[in-house]
Write a protein that binds this DNA or RNA. Structure first.
Lengths: 149, 149
DNA sequence: AAGATATATTTGTAATAACAACTAGAGTAT
DNA sequence: ATACTCTAGTTGTTATTACAAATATATCTT
């Protein structure tokens, strides 16, 4: 559905206003879609994302700063986000030996297990993306990169 | 900057994962950019958006439901959002005569004034979009429409 | 008209986000 | 060593978001 119909706005001042609205709207739409899917696993998009960052690094440990710099929404509070995951026993945290300002964080076996469960259902989730060809997906990615400068 | 570098992730499982991450990331990035700009006017993106919806309709009144259906982030709470704007005297609200379940909402002269001030600075704000050609903007919009189905 | 159902909005709440202030440890210069 | 500055992370506070439940009015059915 065209963005004009989606938000019931007849027209935009120009294509730039339209693309702005469309990026904002689609981002919000996709985040909702994600959250809906992840609700079964009691995770938010941001929490899931942090778990994936940690898995990508596993079995290496990683510090909070590093997590923050890789997060999709950098405004969320990485420290408390890790807290939540720790409470669910999906990650572990310990002060770094060499530099006691830092904390080492790593994913637990349970965390990996949860991610695997999610992976198993990923095909269903990804279905919507097959509305796009691979080439179209590349095009969006490329142009969004360009927009961010 | 490429999304891979932006979030420091070497690779994605496929182009679909990449486009998902990119849409989420860019949406969040753009929302932050917007909020930063609007901070001078003590408005959030959602509040600004509601004001614009009301201006589009002005001097007609509009009901809450209608606002909600046009919002970019439909999960925000339209009722309390209008509250905030009313406290700032940017909008007015009154129970609808014909159907007392509904409320009529409309933008005040002060609200219009604030929007005009923002308009005056819009050129600065829109600068980033000129990284894209008109054609590229149309392409993004079209493909995002397609993604949402 | 009474009761059931649908619609529009508000309110309660718990979780999360935004932002600033604070704490603690490391590095650096004198 | 002392003072200064920088870095990493935590904590406090307020606003916003997400979701469900409650309220109030309108509409439909019999």
């Amino acid at each position: 559905m065209k963005i004009e119909e989606e938000i019931n706005q007849k027209q935009f001042r120009d294509v730039y206003e339209k693309v702005m609205v469309n990026v904002l709207f689609t981002g919000s739409w996709l985040q909702n879609y994600n959250n809906q899917f992840l609700k079964d696993y009691d995770l938010t998009v941001q929490q899931y994302n942090v778990l994936r960052i940690l898995r990508g690094q596993s079995p290496e440990k990683i510090m909070l700063n590093e997590i923050q710099s890789r997060m999709l929404d950098r405004m969320s509070n990485a420290s408390r986000l890790v807290d939540k995951l720790k409470n669910k026993q999906l990650v572990e945290r310990k002060a770094c030996k060499h530099d006691r300002r830092k904390v080492d964080i790593w994913i637990t076996p349970l965390g990996l297990e949860v991610l695997e469960k999610i992976d198993a259902k990923m095909a269903d989730f990804y279905e919507i993306f097959y509305r796009l060809t691979e080439e179209e997906s590349e095009t969006i990615s490329h142009l969004l990169d360009k927009l961010r400068g």
